[in-house]
Write a protein that binds this DNA or RNA. Structure first.
Lengths: 258, 258
DNA sequence: ATTTCTAGACTGAACATTCAGTCAGGACTC
DNA sequence: GAGTCCTGACTGAATGTTCAGTCTAGAAAT
């Protein structure tokens, strides 16, 4: 995004491989892993792609999106920069896809974890925790800075922008469905889920900024508690910092929003 | 921030002019405008500085911090790129100072406007409006994207980071003092101002992100209303979207924060 | 008043570097 | 031996920075 000519944004989404010279391995543009030539399945090419995507993410976190060079990524894996271009036609493509990849992985992990929890309150809590608390999983590691760069890119790169728009949408959808589920189960008060989702997602974004920038007065834990306090108060369920969420004894329902 | 070698961050704050060759005009590093040589005052040099700072801000908004070239800034004013670094030793210095300059101007404007309003509620409302609503003043124009870039830079540039930390601090201080003033005047409920400030500033940041990225479901006006609704509900004062803030007839005070 | 001097403001033309992307070909595998 | 995977060496373009010198206006000298 910082190279040649004005508006150096990559062409539209899944522009396939080049025409002449090269011999590109695998076209992105979708989850289909066309293992050409080699029978059996994914193989090297796909592994490499993932490796590069992951490395790209790492580097972006360290140097920032704008200062990430393909040489950094190559070096990290111990390959030549040329190979990076061999897999991803352009730098933009790689970085853009890396972000998309991260977003996808993150979202998938959210779903996975939430599905394992029994109550809406617990799910909501886990959701918030995944947003604000450091995570064990190295794949999704607490890359808060990534989100900031993500936003900045989305501001000018239409491709990234659409990823981010979709991201935010399912984001809020998750919240809405959690709230609705909780309300139907009698766990939560009957506030407007849509409104709540917008509010909460903005709040989470804002807290993410503070945390990412290591604000002296907003560490992850206190941000988490602040956020959960708000949620519990508004949805009217019992919650205390030390433990995990508890469903209130007496189900509330149909209560007017605040 | 994207040039030579690793860690290409500018040296500490007010590194003065070079030693040998040139004859640099005016050293930054503080609000002192040392109008050397020419008696009377500021003069050309200072005007130029301001001009460049403003141009830099414009360009940053358009192209993004990372893609801003000194040539862009020079071109906009109709001068040679060389003159830009004649005034600011390095690109980094210019951009960093531009952000600092903007932040200062913005904060000053906030103070100016708030001072003119009679009630704490109105002041709070104006404060929120300045954060979320498009502004007439071209100097401070609605440069939401600027904040995103600001954050991203703060993440890696210690110099910018300290600006941003200070920024956020006085930010919250404004909120706290507004709340306290309102509480003392009996306009607001007696919640914890500090906590409220942290919450509100995060919320504002988050909404800023959504607005800056032109989220389809969070336009400035609805963000503003969402935010004001929260504030009014929490501080317990009367507020309705169409008009301006009104102090509640019966002063509330000392009420427990939810 | 004219000339001389000087310093600050400014620029065009290099310079130096960085970096994405190309290319010709090598190794490895089926 | 054909295709896949991979690399070292290179190039072209962009761009921050330097530099030598111009231009202007006021100060000092005449």
């Amino acid at each position: 995004m910082s190279d040649h000519g004005p508006g150096g944004l990559a062409a539209g989404g899944g522009a396939p491989a080049q025409a002449g010279a090269g011999r590109p391995p695998d076209v992105p543009g979708g989850p289909h892993g066309g293992s050409r030539g080699v029978p059996g399945g994914a193989t090297v090419a796909e592994a490499r792609r993932g490796q590069m995507l992951r490395a790209a993410l790492d580097v972006i976190c360290e140097r920032g999106f704008a200062d990430t060079r393909i040489a950094d990524i190559a070096e990290r894996i111990g390959i030549s920069p040329a190979l990076v271009i061999y897999y991803f036609k352009t730098k933009d493509q790689l970085l853009t896809e890396a972000i998309r990849h991260y977003e996808d992985a993150w979202y998938a992990e959210v779903r996975r974890r939430l599905d394992e929890l029994p109550t809406a309150a617990l799910r909501l809590e886990e959701f918030v925790a995944m947003n604000l608390l450091p995570d064990g999983d190295p794949e999704l590691a607490s890359n808060w800075l990534l989100w900031l760069d993500f936003w900045v890119q989305a501001a000018r790169n239409p491709d990234v922008a659409s990823v981010r728009r979709k991201s935010d949408e399912r984001w809020r959808d998750v919240i809405v469905s959690l709230v609705v589920a909780g309300q139907e189960a009698g766990e939560f008060a009957g506030i407007d889920p849509q409104r709540f989702a917008i509010f909460l997602s903005a709040l989470l974004d804002g807290l993410t900024v503070q945390i990412a920038l290591e604000d002296p007065v907003v560490d992850p834990v206190s941000a988490f508690e602040l956020c959960m306090r708000y949620i519990a108060d508004n949805l009217r369920f019992d919650w205390n910092p030390s433990g995990r969420a508890h469903v209130t004894g007496t189900p509330v329902r149909g209560q007017p929003g605040r």
